[in-house]
Computed example of a mutant assay.
Amino acid sequence: MPSSLFDLSGKIALVTGASRGIGEAIAHLLAQHGAEVIVASRKAPACEAVVQRIRENGGKAHALACHMGELEQIDAAFAHIRERFGRLDILVNNAATNPQFGHVLDTTVEAFQKTVDVNLRGYFFACVAAGKLMREHGGGSIINVASVNGVQPAPMQGVYSITKAAVINMTQVFAKECAALGIRCNALLPGLTDTQFASALTQNPQVLEQWLPRIPLGRMARPEEMAGAVLYLASDAASYTTGTALEVDGGLLA
């Protein structure tokens, strides 16, 4: 049984971008610790597959199709959560995109707009909608998945890095303005993680030759290694933690 500090029984948690990778790992761990998890991503079948695996392990989960780059879908998702669950205790903003890997001077307007819409605008309005629900029930916890790129921009990932820096600042804004409402807001900064999303990096030997020597632990992370940090930030163990940017990067930024 989990320690009471990490017990999420009775909590309703929304995890975006939860159909694979870091988001899926987070959804599984929150469910293992008692949360009823809403698994959100663009495609319903992928969400349903994760929900099935959570339920097979004894957890509670529900699928919700939502494109975080579309404001109408965000509004509809939170309206559904309000109607079905009546509350939201935990939001994990994890959905992200990085459509362009190349020199910053070659950035297209389309790639710029898509990255900002999902990584920044989507996060912001999800925080707003979640915060309004949390305010009605005495508080909650918001975790925004940013990136080490938000502290040290990575080559060939210009706009992505810019949006992740903005997410860190946005997290501090919500932390300061919502603390009196009982709402905590923190950011997770993953380092290089072995996911399909990061495959342009993790499957490129030249990139790995550059990155791995910079990581004191000498390897990339597994998605599951990000989930523990989110569990901490979502739980009562972090009751006095808000506005932080928690680096889980193998020592990269040390």
Rank of each mutant, 00 (worst) to 15 (best):
R42P: 11
A254P: 01
R82A: 13
V167I: 14
A238P: 06
Q206W: 02
L30F: 08
V15E: 05
A111C: 00
V145K: 02
A179N: 07
A175W: 03
L105D: 12
T97P: 04
A35M: 07
L64Q: 14
L91G: 02
L252M: 12
E72W: 02
P205C: 10
A175T: 05
Y232H: 14
Y123A: 14
K164M: 04
P45M: 09
P223R: 13
N119T: 07
P99Q: 11
E24D: 00
N57Y: 00
A31P: 07
L30W: 03
I12D: 01
H80V: 08
G34V: 05
L181D: 14
C66N: 07
G243T: 10
A200R: 11
T108K: 12
L120M: 11
F174T: 05
A187V: 04
A165Q: 09
V116N: 06
V207P: 00
I168P: 05
L231G: 09
R121D: 08
L64M: 14
R184D: 00
A49M: 03
E224S: 15
P190L: 07
R184Y: 00
R222V: 10
G182P: 06
L252S: 05
L181Y: 08
N119A: 03
Q196R: 15
A227W: 09
A44F: 09
A49E: 14
S9V: 00
G150W: 08
P205E: 12
P153L: 07
Q157R: 15
G138A: 08
A200Q: 10
G21V: 04
A166I: 13
D75K: 15
D249I: 12
D7Q: 04
M170T: 11
A166L: 10
R82S: 08
T242C: 05
V230F: 03
G17A: 08
V104W: 11
Q113W: 01
I22W: 01
G243W: 01
E136K: 13
Y160W: 07
I215E: 06
A49K: 13
L181C: 04
P153E: 10
I22D: 01
T244L: 02
M1W: 02
P213I: 12
F197S: 06
S199C: 08
V118I: 14
A111S: 15
G59V: 01
A46S: 12
D249S: 10
A175G: 04
Q196A: 15
P190M: 06
E36S: 13
G17V: 10
L120G: 08
E110R: 12
V167M: 06
D7F: 06
N186R: 04
L212Y: 03
R135K: 15
V148L: 11
A227Y: 08
A65C: 05
L105S: 14
W211N: 04
T241H: 05
M156E: 15
Q32E: 15
H33M: 04
G218E: 07
Y123N: 06
A61G: 07
Y123G: 00
I215T: 07
A245C: 09
I38W: 01
F197M: 10
F197E: 05
Y232A: 04
A130G: 12
G250V: 10
L14M: 09
T193Q: 03
E177L: 02
G228L: 09
R84H: 11
L91C: 02
T193F: 02
G17K: 09
Q210I: 13
F112Q: 08
T171E: 03
L71D: 12
